[in-house]
Design a protein around this nucleic acid. Structure first.
Lengths: 140, 140
DNA sequence: TTGAACACTTGCAAAACACAAGTAGACTTT
DNA sequence: AAAGTCTACTTGTGTTTTGCAAGTGTTCAA
């Protein structure tokens, strides 16, 4: 577990994983303009580290040679349960900006949420997860 | 979730929570001499932050006035599912030093493990969790 | 009452981070 | 085909955070 924290022990890495997982982010541009405010040098560094850790992989966009597509690996998508529990915890104990009933719903259907998350990953379905649940904004 | 990461977005905070939760740590001294190598100024700072975040609370030791006992709050113990999932993920995807079969056992009995963890917290039972499962060392 | 245990704090160097700007290659427009 | 734009970065530069060593103050134990 301390090994895990050597990878995630910073403010951005897990957030990047979450954005790839549930918000449908794919490119450097997506992250840079998401409003989360990560500096581009840090972003580049974190993506590099996540790649080296085998959590993220890259492929050039077949339709636009300027773009690089980032994607979670199997190891990366396997973090879904961790993220989900953290989301549930945050909704319960912090003011999250996310509608609590939606999260409560997720907490009741953990397996269904995880299954859908994996399905999206397998099928490269980039649509954000939360609208599927609620038609609402992603939690902050 | 990004709010959660403002608390846990560093190398030590979650580790401290874990040590309180499953290793039976209670004092500053425990952390300082655990071999994890956290600097004392950082340790003091993290404990302070976790306290301010309502995850940890302190009480003077009734038997030894030098000691301060740190203890998880309800909010803190509610992080157990997050820690458990992270532990399972690490065992599956990283070389953890923890015996994998034990973790696999935990993965199969998540609810039982969480229940026992909560029980220990409620009853202030400081014995480490893993020996209960396996008679072995805590994962690194 | 001397020494050790415990929970810190302080000072300083090194590393990580944030911000602004710049670069390079790939598309798009004229 | 030249000029501008988009995307993915890198490169300074200053600030903040961290790590290390040492020190402080209180409490206990002999």
């Amino acid at each position: 577990m301390s090994i895990s924290l050597e990878i995630f022990g910073d403010r951005w890495s897990l957030l990047i994983v979450r954005d790839l997982m549930v918000r449908g982010f794919r490119t450097f541009y997506d992250f840079e303009h998401s409003g989360e405010g990560i500096a581009t040098n840090i972003l580049a560094d974190r993506l590099r580290r996540l790649k080296r850790a085998g959590i993220v992989e890259t492929e050039p966009d077949p339709e636009d040679g300027r773009r690089v597509n980032y994607r979670l690996t199997r190891k990366g998508i396997d973090l879904a349960p961790v993220l989900l529990e953290l989301l549930i915890w945050g909704a319960e104990h912090e003011k999250t900006g996310a509608p609590c009933e939606v999260i409560a719903e997720m907490a009741k259907n953990r397996e269904a949420v995880l299954k859908e998350t994996r399905r999206r990953w397998e099928q490269r379905d980039p649509t954000p997860l939360l609208p599927w649940l609620s038609g609402r904004e992603v939690p902050d």
